[in-house]
Design a binder for these strands. Sequence first.
DNA 1: TCTTTTGGCTAATGATTATTAGCTTACATA
DNA 2: TATGTAAGCTAATAATCATTAGCCAAAAGA
Lengths: 208, 208
Amino acid sequence: MKNEKLSTKERILSEALTLFSVKGFSSVSVAEIANAVGIKAPSIYKHYKSKQDIFKAIITDMDIRYKKYTASLQISGDEALKDIGFFSMVTEEKLIETGIKLFLYFLHDEHTKKFRKMLTIEQYSNTELAALYVKQYADEPLLYQSSVFELLIKEGILKPENPKVMAMHFYSPIYLLLAVCDENPGREGEALQMIEENIRQFIRIYGK
Amino acid sequence: MKNEKLSTKERILSEALTLFSVKGFSSVSVAEIANAVGIKAPSIYKHYKSKQDIFKAIITDMDIRYKKYTASLQISGDEALKDIGFFSMVTEEKLIETGIKLFLYFLHDEHTKKFRKMLTIEQYSNTELAALYVKQYADEPLLYQSSVFELLIKEGILKPENPKVMAMHFYSPIYLLLAVCDENPGREGEALQMIEENIRQFIRIYGK
DNA sequence: TCTTTTGGCTAATGATTATTAGCTTACATA
DNA sequence: TATGTAAGCTAATAATCATTAGCCAAAAGA
């Protein structure tokens, strides 16, 4: 149906992730994955040695994607820091754009979204995945935002309040609204408006 | 082992919830539940007509508990509103206590915690549960906090900013830190400190 | 062109599953 | 005391599951 260009091996991964992200690993049968790909169950084993193996491949794949994603942030971050124009870019509209882009990326990027849902389901039965979940959706975004705000405080653009708390005020509403919108696409507009108001208030409060 | 006073029927519910909250409904076998209770699988059917039936009973049970919980909030809320001493109670320390109590209730109350984890796992495969999740952990807490802040604004205790955004700044960090601590009990202290700092900053910012 | 590899298939296996049938025992009630 | 019911048990059933064996055709490589 979709992804005509992908190899069978890749399509297995893709369809498996789609199914795992809704029903969870153990509720999805190999036959179901095969059916979604358009082959029979035993053919799956020509590509992966077990169902677990498919799962591991998904994790590995997402690990690579995530490293690429954070690397791209790091680069544009570093460049931005060196860029003289950076601080002038920290306007209200730019900050709103940043927040909304982050939100929409997490919400609409097919792979990220499915992977996040799968992690959400599997986190309680797998210690490694629990750690990965907290790292990707709490610790790292907070750390990143925190370091940005710390810089803006040093530059006298924001008031000298605790940057970690500021990161909480900026990021945690986005995290919560993600959970709201995941299964309620109809509430996306409302969420976007909330994020915008949130950031305007953020600047009114913390801006100088 | 525990709950010596509960009937078998109640113990089935309790042990099933414990298992569902870790592995999810479909990954838990009836034999597993029976084993946790200390009986054999077929005996389960003397108390519930199917595995689904156990699940429904858990939902119904939690519905009742939740109604009791919100009713208790409503009463103490109304009383508080009428109470002349209420507004003088809105000190920094009292607000911190409120936030920390909310956090610790969600984090440590055995039933709430297990039910929340189960909802988290099952939300993507069950529309009803998805709605319940958003209602209990996003919409209603935000609505409640929002109405409290609205009142405090009218009374001139807080600055006239958007109370919905204020509720976001107050509640969403608690929601996020819950996800962090659920599978990392070691980080509870850090989270409590974060909540405290968050509320202190909240008051510094919004207080008059 | 010949041969090997790739990737599909059907059929089979053995484990696990939810659930039912039917037996037994203890207790509650008549 | 007699009897019915509640709640346990073992054994059985039928479905579903992951996985393996082994066959076949087409594509790739020699």
